[in-house]
Design a protein around this nucleic acid. Structure first.
Lengths: 206, 206
DNA sequence: TGATTTTTGTACCAATCGGTACGGAACACA
DNA sequence: TGTGTTCCGTACCGATTGGTACAAAAATCA
């Protein structure tokens, strides 16, 4: 009879165990980058919020740029789920309206920093942060592609006239969402953003 | 007969004359802040672009924050004149359309950095730059007030129905302009911004 | 218990940050 | 030719930046 190796969920590697939860630390780092942007977030502020010291940070997450990338992944994974949910609405018009409304809610969620990490994380920065800036632009574009696909589908299904430019319509709503992010970062209230959403929906092709 | 003192345009103060043109230097500083934002612009990059050294900078413009304020004034004075011009159109609808179109042009002017200084100058930053962030938000708001006044006038003149919320409409278009600024900063073409403008005008109250 | 492996805290690194002291250079005026 | 005044260039300041070396600590395994 061979020895039976129990499958343990966590094989518990040898060596001293971590004294912190990497996921909690990542979320703490997210808040700092969210509030201060990539350049404005110093390692001191990060380690302070994460409750760890620099060697632990580097061993677990890599350097500042790698940490930011992991934070951006974490942000998309945990804070932007409402986008795909909204786009799953049966009607494209309702999908877009719900997308905008929930964006207004997310941008003014009192439990989170103001604005959108993907917009204000690195909009203008020094040369050495240029790669982060480009990365955020690419990540923002995937959202626009998602919306564009949804509108093309609406066109195939006949909800949207074939005469409208679906890509341009997606670009329009995404541009508005980024403007809402700027407003929110400057302190706009949920009510103000909701008013903007209502007016923006008037541009929906009839 | 008393001695006649000639009124000279420039009294030529005593002491060694400046070896640079403060206005040219201010414009060079503007480009740096415009591209890199307030925090991303180091004094080294600024003095390098301005062609002067730090003591001259401090003697002429004050510290970094004061320099940025003077740069913001310079920006508004020399780069945002089209706003008041557009709003002077006799028809409010034409005024807004022209405002958006010329914004798209200004944001993609190849002779200037991308985006809007008032948006990307300090959208998210470290604590010590928070006052700059608030200042930019206030400066942006004056533009919104200008547009709001123009729309209220249109309401008084009967061009805009009394039922619409003029402030909210101004907020909507300003939000869109800020979104356009973000897009432009990420490399959007003039054509793409023009498409957005066209769709945005569909939201004009009928 | 001892050997191995990994994490932790401290203390440090060179580079850069924003900002300034100071001596000499360049002008107007006498 | 002074003399007063302003500006320029260098060289420097303390603080902070992102990033690391190193040894003690804490766990597993034998």
């Amino acid at each position: 009879m061979g020895k039976v190796t129990l499958l343990r969920k966590k094989p518990l590697p040898p060596g001293r165990p971590k004294a912190f939860d990497p996921d909690k630390a990542l979320d703490a780092a997210l808040r700092v980058f969210w509030e201060k942007g990539y350049e404005g977030a110093s390692l001191a502020a990060l380690t302070d919020a994460m409750g760890i010291n620099k060697p632990s940070l580097y061993a677990t997450f890599g350097d500042k740029a790698e940490l930011f990338r992991k934070v951006a992944d974490h942000y998309i994974r945990t804070r932007t789920g409402f986008i795909a949910e909204a786009l799953a609405e049966p009607s494209a018009r309702e999908a877009v309206k719900r997308l905008l409304i929930e964006t207004a809610e997310a941008l003014t969620n009192p439990r989170n920093p103001r604005g959108c990490l993907l917009v204000q994380g690195a909009l203008a920065c020094g040369d050495e942060s240029d790669c982060i800036k480009k990365e955020l632009a690419m990540r923002r574009e995937t959202g626009e592609l998602l919306l564009g696909e949804r509108l093309l589908r609406a066109q195939r299904e006949g909800e949207l006239p074939a005469s409208v430019d679906a890509k341009a319509l997606a670009s329009y709503y995404m541009t508005l969402m980024r403007g809402m992010s700027v407003e929110s970062s400057a302190g706009a209230t949920r009510r103000e953003l909701q008013n903007v959403v209502e007016l923006a929906m008037n541009a929906w092709p009839s």
